[in-house]
């Protein structure tokens, strides 16, 4: 390691967790001040929003870590739907992408179709999903799977296709049997791109979860819609902030997994 320069030092201090959380807290404080100044029902104070949130979530008994019925009745089912559908997409997408990517001609036939499917804004398909699957959980799952599948497929195809020729030659010259080819060479080499697809689709999954729930009238989506219609803006804002927190937490969790799986990558570890 070379001696730390002044810039590097500053970078390290600025990049540290404490500083980014300080800025985050500062933003909340700014919100509070502006809301106090503005004094309007549409833009409630941050303390009020967080207070409402605490009332909603932390109303339960101590043995449930204070978590109230809302946490179990609303947040958990919503999360389970989003994560379950996303995980299904991930498994299907990686399998499909690997098959398409390994085939010499499959992408020549299906490439345009998949790019097209990916380009359709999934939200606009909600009416179609309602007709096909009825209003309810099945529709929510279908919407999330459909919208998260294609980014994973395309990234996997890309990853599987971009295995370095020298590595292919090396693996062949070292006598790698064909049945180990996928697991030992192709998928590890494709993993960075597969993870890029997974991260992208995870944020799409949260988005589609809320939209589908607003349409279907369940979970967090229903709460946001109801709060808005009954002029409970404080509660509405709380659910919006909660969604942000959920997205952040899930992304961080996936990053942690990625760091574990892709620990071998030289550039891993400092981006968050």
């Amino acid at each position: 390691m070379s001696a730390p320069t002044a810039t590097a030092k500053r970078g390290r201090i600025l990049g540290s967790a404490a500083v980014t959380w300080f800025v985050f807290a500062l933003a909340l404080l700014l919100w509070e001040l502006i809301a106090v100044g503005a004094d309007t029902v549409y833009f409630p104070r941050m303390t009020a929003i967080l207070g409402t949130g605490a009332d909603i979530l932390l109303s339960g008994p101590a043995w449930r870590l204070m978590l109230g019925d809302a946490a179990f009745g609303i947040v958990l089912p919503s999360l389970a739907t989003a994560l379950g559908a996303w995980a299904f997409s991930a498994a299907l997408g990686v399998a499909l992408g690997t098959a398409l990517g390994r085939s010499r001609w499959a992408m020549d036939y299906c490439g345009t179709l998949i790019s097209f499917l990916r380009s359709v804004p999934p939200v606009t398909l909600m009416p179609a999903f309602m007709v096909m699957f009825g209003i309810g959980l099945r529709m929510e799952i279908a919407a999330i799977v459909f919208s998260t599948l294609w980014p994973i497929v395309l990234n996997t195809v890309d990853g599987v296709r971009s295995v370095d020729q020298v590595k292919i030659d090396t693996a062949r010259s070292l006598g790698t049997p064909r049945r180990y080819w996928l697991g030992m060479i192709v998928l590890p080499a494709a993993m960075p791109k597969i993870f890029a697809g997974l991260r992208l689709s995870l944020s799409i999954a949260i988005l589609l979860m809320v939209v589908a729930e607003i349409v279907a009238g369940t979970g967090i989506g229903l709460r946001i819609a109801t709060a808005q219609q009954t002029v409970e803006y404080t509660e509405m804002w709380f659910w919006v902030l909660l969604l942000g927190a959920i997205g952040y937490a899930l992304n961080s969790a996936l990053l942690a997994v990625e760091r574990l799986v892709l620990g071998w990558q030289p550039t891993r570890g400092d981006d968050a």
Binding site: V166, T170, A189, L262, W264
Partner: peptide, 22 residues
């Protein structure tokens, strides 16, 4: 086809080594 008891060392070591393996 590739014989069993033959090995190749390529010029480009950084591309030839598998980065995901120790």
């Amino acid at each position: 086809g590739v014989p069993d008891d033959l090995a190749v060392v390529f010029q480009d070591y950084s591309r030839s080594l598998f980065p995901w393996l120790t």
